[in-house]
Design a protein around this nucleic acid. Structure first.
Length: 259
DNA sequence: ATGGTTGAACATCAA
């Protein structure tokens, strides 16, 4: 089974690229972030014609997430227990949607950006990650994937110029500790060893063309799922050209379950 | 420090 995660930066404006990506790589499940649309706003006919089911969450224009699956989409959950929201009118937002796809529970996550250290949104980000950790602890036993835009660079290797980011969000010790807490609990980040490259390049200043990016999109797998991972890669080509998202998709291959 | 680009409730906000 092949799963992928991609911050698409608007599913409506990117639908042609999404369909082409799914076909090009023969993807079974795609977790999307920054969908920026309600389900009733989405052109889903193309995806349905390709055999995919779709579930999305989130009503505001920035933070929506979704799952696109052709191997089942069962037990859909919008948000996780204890997930902190933000004030009105964003209270109805959701940054997490989970479902069982092909026997694997997959969570599509859009971790709060944080804006700037000490900003209320940064406090919210750390709180959100802590509450996710508490919920995720009870999912370790099964085959669980926590995928998406974590908005954290876990190491300096994940930043094109660490000096430039010294006073920025994504790299603070508290954010890195919040990310590593999942690893301490038993989750494994399964993409880095196969592809250490960046996953995000800002639209500003030709950052992609100069390969000045960040690695912030990750796939964390429970032990049973991590044991099934055979390969992974960042689809850098998807970031090139006109009409690209500012993130590239991350693809992970799972070995079939041996009967 | 600032600026640059993109998408959306679009001329302002968020990323």
């Amino acid at each position: 089974m092949r799963i992928a995660t991609w911050n698409v930066n608007s599913l409506r404006s990117r639908i042609d690229r999404v369909e082409a990506f799914l076909a090009r790589h023969d993807v079974d499940v795609l977790a999307v972030q920054e969908t920026k649309a309600r389900e009733d706003q989405l052109p889903l006919m193309g995806l349905q014609a390709m055999g995919y089911d779709v579930a999305v969450a989130g009503v505001n224009q920035w933070n929506g997430v979704g799952l696109i699956s052709r191997v089942g989409l069962e037990d859909v959950q919008v948000g996780f227990e204890g997930m902190p929201g933000w004030g009105e009118p964003l209270a109805a937002e959701s940054r997490a949607i989970g479902a069982v796809c092909g026997g694997v529970r997959i969570w599509s996550l859009y971790v709060p950006n944080g804006r700037k250290p000490h900003d209320p949104h940064y406090v919210y980000k750390l709180d959100w990650l802590q509450r996710l950790r508490e919920a995720a602890g009870s999912w370790l036993d099964g085959e669980t994937a926590l995928v998406g835009d974590w908005n954290v660079c876990p190491t300096d290797e994940d930043v094109f110029d660490p000096a430039q980011f010294r006073n920025s969000t994504h790299v603070t010790p508290a954010e890195r500790a919040a990310f590593h807490a999942f690893l301490e609990d038993g989750y494994a980040e399964v993409t880095r060893k196969h592809d250490p490259g960046y996953t995000y390049w800002d639209y500003y200043r030709q950052r992609f063309e100069r390969d000045r990016g960040l690695k912030i999109d990750f796939v964390l797998a429970s032990p049973a799922l991590a044991a099934r991972v055979t390969s992974a890669f960042v689809d850098r080509e998807e970031r090139a050209g006109a009409g690209a998202s500012d993130h590239a998709p991350v693809v992970v291959d799972l070995a079939s379950v041996v009967e």
